[in-house]
């Protein structure tokens, strides 16, 4: 009885590897701020990820930006005033037919103060980006 040939095993595994490489999206953005999201029970999941754009608010990794939560748009730390321009640019990257369905996901550190979040919300309203997701982790409902 001959041994079972394992010669094709590497091919199979490589196939799997390539599948995962293609299927997973690499994070292109560098994390400039540290965000620990709050945990809530009433989660809503957005299926169409290509419609989501992210605003991160958290403690800067680079201490030159201070010790208070700052805003990160794409790859860089930005001011609140930059949001309207950013929203307009992001809209351009979405297919015309789906532009009105754009979501802005706010990834905010749980210890951040509401002042900065309220400012961001006001800017989003001015830019007519009204669909907002407060990004959060999952926990169970309390009794």
């Amino acid at each position: 009885m001959g041994a079972i040939s394992t010669a094709s095993l590497p091919d199979i595994v490589f196939m799997l590897l390539f599948f995962f490489m293609v299927a997973t999206v690499l994070r292109t953005e560098e994390e400039q701020v540290k965000v620990i999201r709050p945990e809530v029970s009433e989660l809503y999941k957005i299926e169409k990820k290509h419609l989501i754009r992210y605003i991160n608010v958290g403690y800067p990794q680079d201490k030159r930006y201070g010790n208070e939560p700052v805003i990160q748009l794409n790859d860089a730390i930005a001011s609140v005033e930059a949001i309207q321009g950013w929203v307009d640019k992001q809209r351009e990257t979405i297919d015309e037919r789906e532009r009105s369905k754009m979501w802005v996901s706010l990834k905010v550190h749980k210890d951040a103060k509401m002042g900065v979040v309220t400012d961001i919300k006001q800017e989003l309203r001015q830019a007519s980006a009204l669909k907002v997701l407060y990004s959060a982790g999952q926990r169970d409902r309390t009794e």
Binding site: L106, V132, L133
Partner: peptide, 14 residues
């Protein structure tokens, strides 16, 4: 794998 879950809200128009 990025998870995009959270609480959704519709902001009022300006």
């Amino acid at each position: 794998i990025d998870s995009d879950e959270g609480i959704k809200r519709q902001l009022p128009p300006p």
